[in-house]
């Protein structure tokens, strides 16, 4: 079975070094996000444009990784941002960061789309399609996204790269493929208890490295 991301190279972001080394980068980005969402709440269309410019590449990339289809991914992007526009109050800063919330909305919407459209495509087929798409990835210049998530993305990737391969795989199958632990056990021909242990260990490791950002 082909791995979805085998052989893919991290796509570097172009960003301003001064911005990236600022210690409060994540908090600064969060403040901008919250400000844009406040403006959205009073109907400021320019705020939507700015949020789109900041995050559409990330939203699209996450959607594409989940749905494995360019047109479906575009539909997900449209729905996510239109929902954001229609119901900005759905985001509550007291309950977490905007970036996490946006990723959660995107991922959930994309998984819903997969379930709606395919009603269970064989994971192997989807993974091969995705591998093809990932291999064709070009380098990106994404200054808006770099300003929003620059260092944080590198930290996350480093944290995930530090996990044992089997733990990382369990996380990816759960998060990006929307599989339950039982489905992961079946797919990977691994005892369910082992899947649970790998999930717990991996999440605890990530929590130690990445937690406390709110």
């Amino acid at each position: 079975m082909a791995d979805a991301h085998a052989g893919s190279e991290p796509v570097p972001l172009r960003f301003d070094r001064t911005e990236a080394t600022r210690p409060q980068d994540a908090a600064y980005a969060q403040a901008i996000d919250d400000s844009l969402m406040e403006r959205m709440a009073i109907g400021d269309g320019r705020a939507l444009e700015q949020l789109y410019d900041r995050y559409h590449i990330l939203v699209y990339s996450v959607a594409l990784r989940v749905v494995r289809d360019q047109m479906l991914a575009e539909d997900v992007v449209q729905e996510v941002f239109v929902r954001l526009w229609r119901r900005p109050q759905a985001y509550d800063p007291a309950r977490g960061r905007f970036l996490s919330w946006l990723m959660s909305v995107t991922r959930n919407r994309a998984i819903d789309e997969v379930r709606r459209v395919t009603r269970r495509l064989r994971i192997e087929d989807r993974r091969e399609d995705a591998a093809e798409q990932v291999r064709s990835t070009d380098r990106l210049d994404a200054p808006e996204l770099a300003a929003a998530i620059g260092d944080e993305r590198r930290e996350v990737r480093a944290a995930l790269a530090s996990l044992p391969q089997e733990q990382r795989r369990v996380l990816e199958l759960a998060y990006f493929d929307g599989l339950t632990q039982s489905e992961i056990a079946t797919l990977t021909e691994t005892p369910l208890g082992t899947v649970k242990t790998r999930t717990r260990l991996a999440m605890n490791r990530l929590r130690q490295r990445l937690g406390g950002r709110s």
Binding site: H5, R65, T137, L206
Partner: peptide
């Protein structure tokens, strides 16, 4: 939700 940032 940070796992999403690992996406190519």
């Amino acid at each position: 939700d940070l796992i999403a940032l690992d996406t190519p």
